[in-house]
Design a protein around this nucleic acid. Sequence first.
DNA 1: CGCTACTTTGAATTATCTCAAGTTGAGTGG
DNA 2: CCACTCAACTTGAGATAATTCAAAGTAGCG
Lengths: 261, 261
Amino acid sequence: MQSFRSAPIVLVTEQDSAKLDVEGPAGLASWLAGHSYRVVRHHHAAGTQLFAEDDDLEYLCVLSRGWALKYKSLFEGRRQVLDFALPGDVLGFVGERRARHAVEMLTDGEVVSVPRELFGSLAAANPELMLKVVRQLERASTRAHEHMVSIGCRAALSRVSRLLVELVERRTLSSNARHDIEIDAPIRQIHVADALGLRGETVCRALKQLEAANLATFRRGRLRVPDLVKLRGVAETPDAEAHTTRKAIRRGAAPAATAAA
Amino acid sequence: MQSFRSAPIVLVTEQDSAKLDVEGPAGLASWLAGHSYRVVRHHHAAGTQLFAEDDDLEYLCVLSRGWALKYKSLFEGRRQVLDFALPGDVLGFVGERRARHAVEMLTDGEVVSVPRELFGSLAAANPELMLKVVRQLERASTRAHEHMVSIGCRAALSRVSRLLVELVERRTLSSNARHDIEIDAPIRQIHVADALGLRGETVCRALKQLEAANLATFRRGRLRVPDLVKLRGVAETPDAEAHTTRKAIRRGAAPAATAAA
DNA sequence: CGCTACTTTGAATTATCTCAAGTTGAGTGG
DNA sequence: CCACTCAACTTGAGATAATTCAAAGTAGCG
């Protein structure tokens, strides 16, 4: 079932369409909003589950405002966060009706929904639409791959750093700011943990380390990064530094100053 | 640079096109092969690197025969295997020229290559082409997500079991065989390890366990699974069974028989 | 003011990694 | 047909990063 079907349905107006352009020229939501009165926009409260894994989806959706979470649930309440969806991201699947993962709103937000068959005809008539979708898919896929590298190869501190860097980069895009960046990141430590294959306690300890080293402060949905380059350095130091230090200590040498010390 | 540019270039003939249909009705390679003389087919030896991360790709490629490996390299020789590519899989990126990961042949095989701009015009003229690409992308994305669940949430034994199940399912597709399945899987333990975020030794120990329990035998590129349902059971038993057993032992109770014991 | 949900800290436990030796087996060339 | 080689696989024992369990702290909110 699609729980959002009970949400108020708002037809997209011309003004709305113009407003959606804030997502940039590649914005899928704005494109869709302007092409049929059957493209609708729903508002959803934080915490709403848009759909669950295995749901039969009648719509293809694009997030137009707010943050959402894509995840898969396992046994014993464990879950894997697959991606943080930001405005412009596709929620749903073009190739099949069955949902391969769940999606839930992290903040209040808005979702543009297109009936599947309407999307099909829009796509047939407008090649550029499918291209926009492909680009979104590939971007999401690249993020998933980076994610896999983190979970598979990096130590806890690096994973957390890498995720913070990703969040900053997704929010500051073309901006080349590198110092004292501060963004809203409406997520809890547990979301970071579930995304990185760690437990909440481990994420907490990693964040404390980053804070102690003045590399990043993440509290109550607000992320501050004094020096993005340095943080990226920790993210890309998989284990090498820690490893070297460890060995040196074992040999009785004085430990080198690490980024987090 | 694209190292495969030095490979012999073979124009696709009508017969080739017909032959490529073994990939099934959704086969991208066969579709592409029939639509322009500028679509070429290359042969590549096992071990060939088709492209590296950050290469500037002039072609969009589809694997038509053999197995390939998508991966990202890190420090100290560590790498994360992102996906095993089988015939029909897209190698390359529609939305941008820059490669986001490396690809290397696991076996001898063939690759159908389309110049990027030609792909663009083919896609504009044939909406169904882009749809085929989207479906491939979504399938790869779903695999990546399953992969993340494994790496992030499962114990070593479950991860290995899950990967073996995935390989079997991809090779037997619509077949509903469930007993005594045997397939070629031209990979080594180290590929499994790099795919699952484990070390070779750990994969070896997991495989030994599976073999001892008569759940799967994987040796020299050949995988035999006596009972797919049972193996799937181990894959989906994240830790619960082992965990319960562990606790029971600590309490002094007799350990329950586990699948791998 | 007292929930409730989230975060923090500590100590013990453990799955996996590391390091270091073997062992196996397919391929090679005498 | 028999060494020989080399890469892949196997096995063991010790080290460690992360988990688990348990118990306090905090902060937002009605």
